[in-house]
Amino acid sequence: MTSLGLSKRATVVDNTIRASAGDRVFMVINYVLLTIILLIVLYPLVYTLSASLSDPSAVITGKVVLFPVDFSLRSYEKIFNYPSIINGMLNSLFYTVVGSSVSIVLTFLAAYPLTRKDLPGRRFFTILFFFPLLFSGGLIPFYLVTRDLGLVNTRWALIIPTALSVWNLIITISYLRSSIPEELWEAAQIDGCSDIGYLMKIILPLSKSLVAVLFLVYAVAQWNQYFFSLIFQTNPDLAPLQIVLRNILILNKIDLGMIADVQRLADQQALQEQLKFSSIVVASIPVLMLYPFVQRYFVQGLTIGAIKG
């Protein structure tokens, strides 16, 4: 109903008073500008996909311009037979699932009490959590704490030290404040509901979309993370996908002997370059596939966190 009314209103504005020539020129320029932006953003993505689906020699000789040349799935076959990529994917899956779950629990544990006005010392605890946004001890002391806790070279190194994001805490607090009325707590309290019971029975069931947003934010950050593995883990068995990708894409460290029986140097180089494109696709697809489904939630969550009240 409302959307119908709104669109009707919009047409009234745009059609009954006929657009002037200047406005029409303006709109044409606007569409052209946006189309250019669209193409600039889209082209590298399409090119990467096409290159990964082409024949290696076509890629390296620059024959791929827009569409795949000599369509071939060989590089994907190779990628999925490359042990460190498979290992990296499994590790990243573990870090993403476990890490995001730990993070969400921790975020709610902090956010819920901080939204309760009857918590003695609420202001103190709020400052305690927010001050680290303004000042931090720096990378080295952070590293030393993690090292002294014995987390270096364990899987936990990628989960515990970065478990709570204060930005996500802010999003969560503003969501809870704006979407769950305080009267609910008063009513629940009269019914004899405990503080923890209120969190479990009222807050959590009412914040499903928030949990989805938090999972997405934490999961994307965890899946894309490489730096903390770089400083905390030297054991390649623990390496997440991004570290494996860094070796392939940026350091040019790829062991073709494990996956291909290519003798000629030129073929080797061609395959190596093409594997870069297919590994880019393979690493980005899980995140990009997830995103259209949750885009709505994501945008909502972001604007909730950003615009206070």
């Binding site: 921790l106 819920y112 009490p113 080295i140 002391p141 030393l144 993690t146 478990a163 503080d195 969190l199």
Partner: peptide, 29 residues
């Protein structure tokens, strides 16, 4: 009365002290 809220806060506080405030003290090096 609000002991349950403090119980909930215990873990996040332990986290923030360990990974934000102890490094601030550690910056004395």
């Amino acid at each position: 009365r609000r002991w349950q809220l403090y119980l909930l806060l215990a873990l996040p506080i332990a986290y923030i002290i360990t990974f934000a405030y102890i490094p601030m003290i550690g910056a004395q090096i």
